[in-house]
Design a protein around this nucleic acid. Structure first.
Lengths: 101, 101
DNA sequence: CCTAAATATTCATATATTTGCATTTATAAA
DNA sequence: TTTATAAATGCAAATATATGAATATTTAGG
């Protein structure tokens, strides 16, 4: 039987790292653009959001590193997409909560 | 009609701040203890988690400030509890995602 | 008023994150 | 091989966050 005492530090770290990866305005904006299984390149995102190419790449790297996104190279482009589409629900849930009051 | 272009910086900031508040191992542990409408005092949390009183108070302050928790003083104690019980779903969702692979 | 208990705040230090410039690497096409 | 485009990386400066010791505040009970 599982209870709260058995949530070990590693699991907490992992969950916190994933959330931390998402918890940034630019990265939330990226996730919104990738909802519904869409795949976008670094350049597309960098132009959509109006931020530097290297900054974009850094943010995508963080999201990928923490298991939020996957990427796939096709020629010169690298396409990024959501690993778990369920993750975009987190953003929606948050947005509902930040709506009230 | 709402589309992605209309998600302004303020909304993104707000969502990011709420997520950032949650995205910390200690604070996730706090949320887990408050699931199901439970109310705990600073001292109870500080003893449950084995962290300093002032550190505990700092973390609770962050969660309250960012709209994740509410508090209510009763005599010498201050009880903290989840503002939106739905928020604990975020943690559960994350935990499911960090389970795979 | 005095004391004790619970909580909050101030402050300093340590650590982590963000950003973008400059550079490098990877790939495709000429 | 040379050139151009796309993406990733190294680095440094600015900014933000975490922690806990010390202190202040709040409240209840003498």
């Amino acid at each position: 039987m599982f209870n709260i005492q058995e949530i070990d530090a590693d699991r907490l770290e992992m969950a916190a790292n994933m959330l931390k990866a998402i918890a940034h305005p630019v990265r939330i904006a990226i996730l919104k653009h990738l909802e519904g299984g869409k795949k976008l390149t670094v350049t597309e995102i960098h132009e959509l959001l109006g931020i530097e190419q290297s900054t974009t790449s850094h943010h995508l790297g963080i999201l990928k590193d923490k298991g939020v996104l996957c990427s796939r190279r096709e020629g010169k482009n690298t396409y990024y997409y959501l690993k778990h589409d369920i993750l975009s629900q987190i953003v929606d849930c948050l947005q509902r909560c930040t709506c009230e009051e």
